[in-house]
Computed example of a mutant assay.
Amino acid sequence: MRKLILPFLVLSFLVTFSCKSENSSDASENVSQDDANEIIGYNNALIKLNDAQHKYLEIINNNLGKIETGLQNPNDRFAFSGLFPPTYFKPVSTFNEPKAEEPGNAFSKEDRQFFKSNIKTLNETFQNVQTKYEELKNYLKAEDFKDDNGAKGKQLIGEIDAFIANYNKTNEAITAKLSTVADGAERKILKDHPLKDYIFAFKDDSKAINEFVNIAYESPENYKSIETKLQASYDKIEKLNKQHTAMTAPDGKEFPGRDGSFKRFNDEINDFLVDARKIMREASTSGELTEYNLESFSRNEESIRNAYNNFVD
């Protein structure tokens, strides 16, 4: 089963943090408001880039499975039906918005270099996927599989899979660094904000969901090997959801729309738990998580992430 990771990246609401010293030491007490806002902008620029690329790769990922199956019986006239054309629109930054490729001076020298280097690698790997998929598309269009019994097509699928795996690895490193640089200090900076408890509660929920989905992808074909870990992760999400659902909703007059967003977010978490219980019960009997199960987890996670972003946007 192909793994396409949606990393734990969510919009920052007010301010976040990165120290400006050359050695990345903790300087959260001294961070300026301007630097904090610059980090917010960069964080959100990364999210825009990631979302756009992820949507494209998600379609590619689904198509590869269908193409791989079709190459096993290419003479079937429906062998390559149901393929969706992937589209990608690179995010456009306005004059004042930062670009993911250009981290600002609010970051330390070391962190600026890290993000520049890894975003460059991420974009190059993404472009390699685009190039190879275009080659695969032309291979199918010309029906070249009739000449080589699908050999070139299978080779291209393997190359695209390898690029996507490298993309995932780089994306995870970027996400981990951004979290390390920003998360702890964001909690300090937002300590007096009236919505801070909701923001941190929702972030904790979203992070727990992300951990659950990553565990599910570890060994879906051997469910017993991950069942205990997945159940523990489920229990953590359920506990958090009970705590956060019991919170008093934000004042709708003081914060228009936030009361409804609060309820929608908790409803999304509850829907995730309902679906997860059913899927886990079936997997415990069958011994595996199907590709459809994994896609369901990922879709639900993305809905939760969108609900969070709607709350803070």
Rank of each mutant, 00 (worst) to 15 (best):
R2I: 09
R2S: 03
S12W: 00
S18G: 06
N23W: 07
A27W: 08
A27Q: 14
S28E: 10
Q33C: 01
I40Q: 00
N44W: 05
L49T: 01
D51H: 09
Q53S: 12
Y56I: 03
L64T: 00
L71P: 02
P74F: 09
T87F: 09
P91N: 08
V92Q: 11
V92N: 08
F95H: 06
K99R: 13
F114Q: 09
L122K: 14
Q127V: 09
V129L: 06
V129E: 03
K132N: 12
K137F: 08
Y139D: 04
K141V: 06
E143M: 11
F145M: 03
A162Y: 05
F163V: 03
N171L: 15
E172D: 11
I174K: 04
I174V: 15
A176P: 01
K177L: 11
I189D: 02
I199Q: 01
S206M: 09
S206W: 00
I209A: 01
P220K: 06
N222F: 12
S225M: 05
L230T: 13
L230K: 03
Y234W: 08
G252E: 14
P256H: 08
R258M: 04
D259V: 10
S261D: 06
L273W: 07
L273R: 07
G287A: 12
E288F: 11
Y292H: 06
L294I: 10
E295M: 12
S298D: 13
N300L: 13
A307W: 01
D313M: 01
